[in-house]
Protein backbone atom coordinates (compact mmCIF):
# COMPACT_ATOMS: atom_id res chain seq x y z
CA UNK A 1 0.00 0.00 0.00
CA UNK A 2 1.38 3.36 -0.97
CA UNK A 3 0.55 6.36 1.17
CA UNK A 4 0.51 9.81 -0.34
CA UNK A 5 2.57 12.75 0.89
CA UNK A 6 -0.20 14.17 3.03
CA UNK A 7 -0.88 10.86 4.77
CA UNK A 8 2.79 10.37 5.55
CA UNK A 9 2.99 13.93 6.88
CA UNK A 10 0.07 13.02 9.13
CA UNK A 11 2.03 10.06 10.50
CA UNK A 12 5.04 12.29 11.09
CA UNK A 13 2.91 14.74 13.07
CA UNK A 14 1.48 11.90 15.09
CA UNK A 15 4.67 10.07 16.00
CA UNK A 16 6.67 13.26 16.57
CA UNK A 17 3.99 14.62 18.88
CA UNK A 18 4.94 18.04 17.55
CA UNK A 19 2.36 20.74 16.93
CA UNK A 20 3.95 22.09 13.76
CA UNK A 21 1.25 24.70 13.25
CA UNK A 22 2.48 26.61 16.29
CA UNK A 23 5.68 27.58 14.46
CA UNK A 24 6.01 31.34 13.94
CA UNK A 25 8.97 31.00 11.57
CA UNK A 26 11.44 32.90 13.69
CA UNK A 27 14.27 30.61 12.60
CA UNK A 28 15.76 30.32 16.06
CA UNK A 29 15.91 26.53 15.81
CA UNK A 30 18.02 26.68 12.65
CA UNK A 31 20.17 29.49 13.99
CA UNK A 32 21.17 27.36 16.97
CA UNK A 33 21.51 24.05 15.09
CA UNK A 34 25.11 22.77 15.20
CA UNK A 35 24.40 20.59 12.15
CA UNK A 36 23.08 23.50 10.10
CA UNK A 37 25.84 23.35 7.51
CA UNK A 38 25.58 19.59 7.13
CA UNK A 39 21.85 19.21 6.63
CA UNK A 40 20.19 19.97 3.29
CA UNK A 41 17.02 21.01 5.09
CA UNK A 42 17.17 22.90 8.35
CA UNK A 43 14.98 22.37 11.40
CA UNK A 44 12.55 25.20 10.58
CA UNK A 45 12.16 23.78 7.08
CA UNK A 46 11.28 20.35 8.44
CA UNK A 47 8.58 21.98 10.52
CA UNK A 48 7.17 24.03 7.64
CA UNK A 49 7.28 21.23 5.10
CA UNK A 50 5.51 18.80 7.42
CA UNK A 51 2.91 21.44 8.28
CA UNK A 52 2.23 21.88 4.53
CA UNK A 53 2.26 18.16 3.84
CA UNK A 54 5.08 18.59 1.29
CA UNK A 55 7.56 16.01 2.43
CA UNK A 56 8.71 13.91 -0.54
CA UNK A 57 11.97 15.86 -0.68
CA UNK A 58 12.50 15.39 3.06
CA UNK A 59 12.03 11.65 2.90
CA UNK A 60 14.64 11.36 0.15
CA UNK A 61 17.20 13.52 1.90
CA UNK A 62 20.13 11.53 3.23
CA UNK A 63 21.54 14.37 5.30
CA UNK A 64 18.76 13.85 7.84
CA UNK A 65 21.23 11.49 9.54
CA UNK A 66 23.45 14.47 10.31
CA UNK A 67 21.06 15.72 12.99
CA UNK A 68 22.79 15.11 16.33
CA UNK A 69 19.62 14.85 18.43
CA UNK A 70 21.21 17.48 20.65
CA UNK A 71 17.80 19.05 21.39
CA UNK A 72 19.18 22.57 21.17
CA UNK A 73 16.33 23.42 18.76
CA UNK A 74 13.79 21.92 21.16
CA UNK A 75 15.14 23.86 24.11
CA UNK A 76 15.37 27.18 22.29
CA UNK A 77 12.15 27.22 20.26
CA UNK A 78 10.01 29.97 21.78
CA UNK A 79 6.83 28.21 20.64
CA UNK A 80 7.43 24.73 22.01
CA UNK A 81 7.40 23.16 18.54
CA UNK A 82 10.14 20.58 19.19
CA UNK A 83 11.74 20.52 15.71
CA UNK A 84 14.16 17.69 16.63
CA UNK A 85 11.17 15.43 17.12
CA UNK A 86 9.97 16.21 13.60
CA UNK A 87 13.45 15.50 12.22
CA UNK A 88 13.54 12.24 14.21
CA UNK A 89 10.11 11.18 12.91
CA UNK A 90 11.20 11.73 9.30
CA UNK A 91 14.35 9.76 9.97
CA UNK A 92 12.53 6.93 11.69
CA UNK A 93 10.23 6.51 8.67
CA UNK A 94 13.28 6.25 6.41
CA UNK A 95 14.93 3.77 8.77
CA UNK A 96 11.85 1.59 8.94
CA UNK A 97 11.77 1.13 5.21
CA UNK A 98 14.04 -1.64 3.95
CA UNK A 99 16.99 0.09 2.31
CA UNK A 100 15.68 3.46 3.42
CA UNK A 101 18.69 4.41 5.50
CA UNK A 102 22.04 5.34 4.04
CA UNK A 103 23.95 3.53 6.77
CA UNK A 104 23.63 -0.19 7.40
CA UNK A 105 24.60 -2.31 10.40
CA UNK A 106 27.08 -4.24 8.24
CA UNK A 107 29.21 -1.10 8.14
CA UNK A 108 29.59 -0.98 11.91
CA UNK A 109 32.23 -3.71 12.48
CA UNK A 110 34.68 -1.90 10.20
CA UNK A 111 34.31 1.20 12.35
CA UNK A 112 35.27 -0.72 15.47
CA UNK A 113 38.37 -2.04 13.78
CA UNK A 114 39.28 1.39 12.46
CA UNK A 115 39.29 3.02 15.90
CA UNK A 116 39.58 0.96 19.06
CA UNK A 117 38.63 3.89 21.28
CA UNK A 118 35.10 4.24 19.95
CA UNK A 119 32.81 3.71 22.94
CA UNK A 120 30.09 1.06 22.91
CA UNK A 121 27.58 3.83 23.42
CA UNK A 122 28.35 5.14 19.91
CA UNK A 123 28.09 1.68 18.39
CA UNK A 124 24.77 0.99 20.07
CA UNK A 125 23.61 4.40 18.84
CA UNK A 126 24.76 3.50 15.34
CA UNK A 127 22.66 0.34 15.35
CA UNK A 128 19.72 2.35 16.60
CA UNK A 129 20.09 5.51 14.58
CA UNK A 130 21.52 4.31 11.32
CA UNK A 131 19.81 0.95 11.10
CA UNK A 132 18.69 -1.12 8.08
Amino acid sequence: MKLDEKEIAGIIKEISGSDVKKCMKCGKCSATCPAYGEMKFHPHQFVTMVARGKIDELLKDETVTRCLSCFACVERCPRGVEPANVVAAVRVLAEREQGGSNFVPDEVPALIIADKEIPQQALVSAFRRYRK
Binding site: A35, E38, R66, L68, S69, V108
Partner: peptide, 19 residues
Protein backbone atom coordinates in the same frame (compact mmCIF):
# COMPACT_ATOMS: atom_id res chain seq x y z
CA UNK B 1 26.30 23.03 26.82
CA UNK B 2 26.71 22.71 23.05
CA UNK B 3 26.91 19.33 21.35
CA UNK B 4 30.24 17.52 20.76
CA UNK B 5 28.84 15.81 17.68
CA UNK B 6 27.76 12.66 19.51
CA UNK B 7 27.40 9.58 17.34
CA UNK B 8 27.71 11.57 14.10
CA UNK B 9 31.46 10.96 14.42
CA UNK B 10 30.75 7.50 12.96
CA UNK B 11 29.20 9.12 9.91
CA UNK B 12 31.38 12.18 9.58
CA UNK B 13 34.47 12.75 11.66
CA UNK B 14 34.82 16.18 10.11
CA UNK B 15 31.44 17.25 11.45
CA UNK B 16 32.28 16.13 14.99
CA UNK B 17 35.69 17.76 14.76
CA UNK B 18 34.15 21.06 13.83
CA UNK B 19 32.01 20.99 16.99
Amino acid sequence: NECCGGYVTLKSEAQAKEN
